[in-house]
């Protein structure tokens, strides 16, 4: 199984808990807003620590509360595409794209996706944006760059948090096609979070319903 996730975490009033497994392709985590889907992604990425449980991706244990395993985010090999792009505002597009690529260790290159800047730029059609500042990009352009930045960081798997949520209808179609091509071309296991049924049905290989947050 590509994703083996069994975690729980107390957050605010409730408890976010999930027990799921996902195979190759895109596994969609589907549910209403406020159910804690983003928190699950953050737990897989290492940005949020589960209270207990286990996270493994492609057979590699990233977190195991009982065994005391908790890999730092930079060692997990996640290519994380955020809802808002989250590009670094003080770096041009080129430097944003190369941020993770420059940090990649030989081990990461050997085990994760190893792809050149030119290839990613051509694949995403962002050659004309390389010298621009992030604040001058449209929502769709920013999301392409964010996807490119994640792909260039030698990821072993991808996390996508509502990457279409901040886009208008035309751009949504556009980026959805990009995500389909990423799925088919690179074959990275992907955990995809959304509250939009149509989007999930088009993209996902497998759909996991996010349970409502237990208020305890």
């Amino acid at each position: 199984m590509s994703f083996e996730i069994s975690v729980s975490r107390r957050l605010g009033q409730g408890v976010i808990a999930l027990d799921m497994a996902g195979g190759d392709g895109i596994t969609a985590l589907f549910g209403p807003s406020g159910a804690g889907k983003t928190s699950i992604l953050n737990m897989v990425a290492g940005l949020l620590r589960p209270d207990r449980g286990r996270v493994a991706v492609a057979g590699r244990t990233l977190f195991d509360g009982d065994a005391g395993i908790d890999l730092a985010p930079e060692r997990r090999g996640a290519g994380y595409v955020f809802q808002d792009g989250r590009l670094f505002p003080h770096r041009r597009v080129r430097a944003n794209l190369l941020y993770g690529a420059r940090l990649a260790t030989p081990e990461a290159r050997a085990t994760g996706l190893d792809i050149a800047l030119d290839e990613v730029v051509a694949f995403l059609g962002i050659g004309h944006l390389l010298d621009r500042w992030p604040r001058t990009l449209s929502g769709g352009e920013a999301q392409r760059v964010a996807i490119g930045r994640a792909l260039l960081a030698c990821p072993r798997f991808l996390l996508m948090d509502e990457p279409l949520a901040s886009l208008d209808a035309a751009r949504r179609d556009d980026i959805m096609a990009v995500i389909e091509r990423v799925r088919d071309e690179f074959g990275l296991p992907t955990l995809y979070v959304s509250h939009d049924r149509a989007e999930v049905e088009r993209l996902a290989t497998r759909i996991v319903a996010m349970p409502q947050r237990d208020t305890a």
């Binding site: 940005l47 994380y80 989250r86």
Partner: peptide
Amino acid sequence: GAARTLGA
């Protein structure tokens, strides 16, 4: 956080 996931 984004920088951390990118390997920093």
